[in-house]
C-alpha cells in the first residue's frame, strides 16, 4: 500500500499538489493507495475522501494546528507504523522539503526527491544537474522509501471516485512538545504588481547579464503591451523588485503569451509559468530546459534577436501577415 501524505494550505484547503501525489501513487500501479492528513478540518477530510483512496488516516492532536517538522515526523511515524505502507509519497512542496528527509531518516530509509516520472514501481525518474540530465533512481532493497513528486509532473484530472467517500481512521498521535516555535505566517509589504492576471508577460533571466540591458527588455514589453517580469536571480540581484518575480517563491502566472528572454528554465521558474497558453523562449543555449515547454523557440543571442524583434513588432502593428 502507498501512503500519500496530504498537505493543507493555511486556509484549510488541500494543496492541489497533494492530489497530484495521489495520482502519482495510482500511476505506480502497485495496489492500494491510502492518504494521511495531519490536523485539518472537515473540508480537507471531505476533499481527500472524495479521491480514489482506500482509506484516510487522520492524525489528531492539538499540536497539529501549526506545522513543525518535529511534530510532523513523530505523527507520521505513528501513522506509518499503524498503516504499514510499502512507500510514502508526497508533493515536493516547501513543507515536504523541510520534513521529508527527516522522516525518511527517522524511518531508517531514504527520500528520493523531486520525482518527475516512474519507470517501474521500483525505479523513479528525477532531474539532476539542474535538469540537464535525468536519473533513474531506486531505493536500496529492504529499506522504507519516501518519494516526493514534482509539482505539475503528474496529472490529477483523472482522479475520480465512484460511490461513498473513503473510510476515515482517526489516529490519536502523541508528539512531544515542538522544539521549534513557529510564528505567524506573513507577507512583506503588499504586492504592488499582480502579474497573475496579466495577459502578456515578458520575463527576463540571468541571460540579460547587466541591469542596463533591462531597458531593452522594457522596450520589448512596451512593444507587446506586456508586463515585465523576471526569474529569481534578477530580483535577488535587485535589478527588478521582488514583486516582479515569477516562480515557486514568487508569483504564479498564466498569461496568453509568456516570452522568456535569457531564462534557462529552472524548475523553480517553470512551476510559476507553465500554465501560460503560449510560451516563447529566446536563449543562447539550445539545451536550456525552457525550450522543452516553449511553443516557439529562438536559439540565439538575445542581444541580436531582441532589438530585431522590437523593430519587427513596431513595423507590423497591424494584423498578422498570415
Amino acid at each position: 500500500m502507498i501512503l500519500v501524505v496530504a498537505e493543507t494550505h493555511a486556509s484549510g484547503e488541500v494543496n492541489p499538489a497533494s492530489l497530484e501525489a495521489i495520482a502519482a501513487a495510482q500511476q505506480l500501479g502497485t495496489g492500494a493507495v491510502c492518504a494521511a492528513l495531519l490536523g485539518g478540518d472537515a473540508s480537507a477530510v471531505a476533499a481527500l475522501t472524495a479521491c480514489p483512496i482506500e482509506r484516510l488516516y487522520h492524525g489528531q492532536h492539538p499540536s497539529l494546528a501549526t506545522y513543525s517538522p518535529d511534530v510532523w515526523v513523530q505523527a507520521l511515524v505513528q501513522i506509518y507504523e499503524q498503516a504499514q505502507p510499502t512507500l510514502v509519497l508526497l508533493a515536493h512542496t516547501y513543507q515536504a522539503r523541510d520534513f521529508a528527509p527527516q522522516l525518511a531518516t527517522r524511518l531508517g530509509g531514504a527520500l528520493i526527491s523531486d520525482v518527475t516520472g516512474v519507470k517501474s514501481p521500483a525505479i523513479f525518474i528525477r532531474p539532476m544537474y539542474q535538469g540537464k540530465l535525468a536519473a533513474e533512481v531506486s531505493f536500496r532493497p529492504d529499506i522504507p522509501g519516501v518519494v516526493t513528486v514534482q509539482i505539475g509532473a503528474f496529472n490529477r484530472a483523472s482522479l475520480r471516485r465512484d460511490g461513498a467517500p473513503a473510510p476515515v481512521t482517526m489516529v490519536n498521535v502523541t508528539p512531544d512538545a515542538p522544539r521549534i516555535e513557529a510564528g505567524e505566517i506573513f507577507t512583506e509589504a503588499k504586492q504592488a504588481i499582480d502579474l497573475s492576471h496579466a495577459p502578456v508577460i515578458v520575463a527576463v533571466g540571468r541571460g540579460i547579464k547587466d541591469p542596463k540591458n533591462l531597458d531593452m527588455a522594457r522596450q520589448l514589453a512596451a512593444a507587446m503591451g506586456a508586463e515585465l517580469a523576471a526569474s529569481r536571480p534578477i530580483c535577488d540581484s535587485g535589478w527588478l523588485p521582488m514583486d516582479r518575480q515569477v516562480g515557486s517563491s514568487g508569483q504564479t502566472v498564466a498569461p496568453k503569451l509568456y516570452l522568456a528572454v535569457g531564462i534557462s528554465g529552472a524548475i523553480q521558474h517553470l512551476v510559476g509559468m507553465r500554465g501560460s497558453r503560449t510560451v516563447v523562449a529566446i536563449n543562447k543555449d539550445p539545451d536550456a530546459p525552457i525550450f522543452e515547454i516553449a511553443d516557439y523557440g529562438v536559439v540565439g543571442d538575445l542581444f541580436e534577436v531582441v532589438p530585431a524583434l522590437i523593430a519587427a513588432l513596431q513595423a507590423s502593428p497591424g494584423a498578422p501577415p498570415d
Partner: peptide, 30 residues
C-alpha cells in the same frame, strides 16, 4: 540508501517550433 541506476539526457518535449535563420529572420518569424 538510494542508487542511481542510469543517467541520461532527457528527451526534449516535442511540439515546440524552433525558428531558424539570421537574428533578423528569427525576429520576423517570431
Amino acid at each position: 540508501r538510494q542508487v542511481i541506476e542510469r543517467l541520461y539526457v532527457p528527451a526534449k518535449r516535442q511540439g515546440g517550433e524552433l525558428l531558424t535563420g539570421t537574428a533578423a529572420e528569427q525576429a520576423a518569424q517570431l
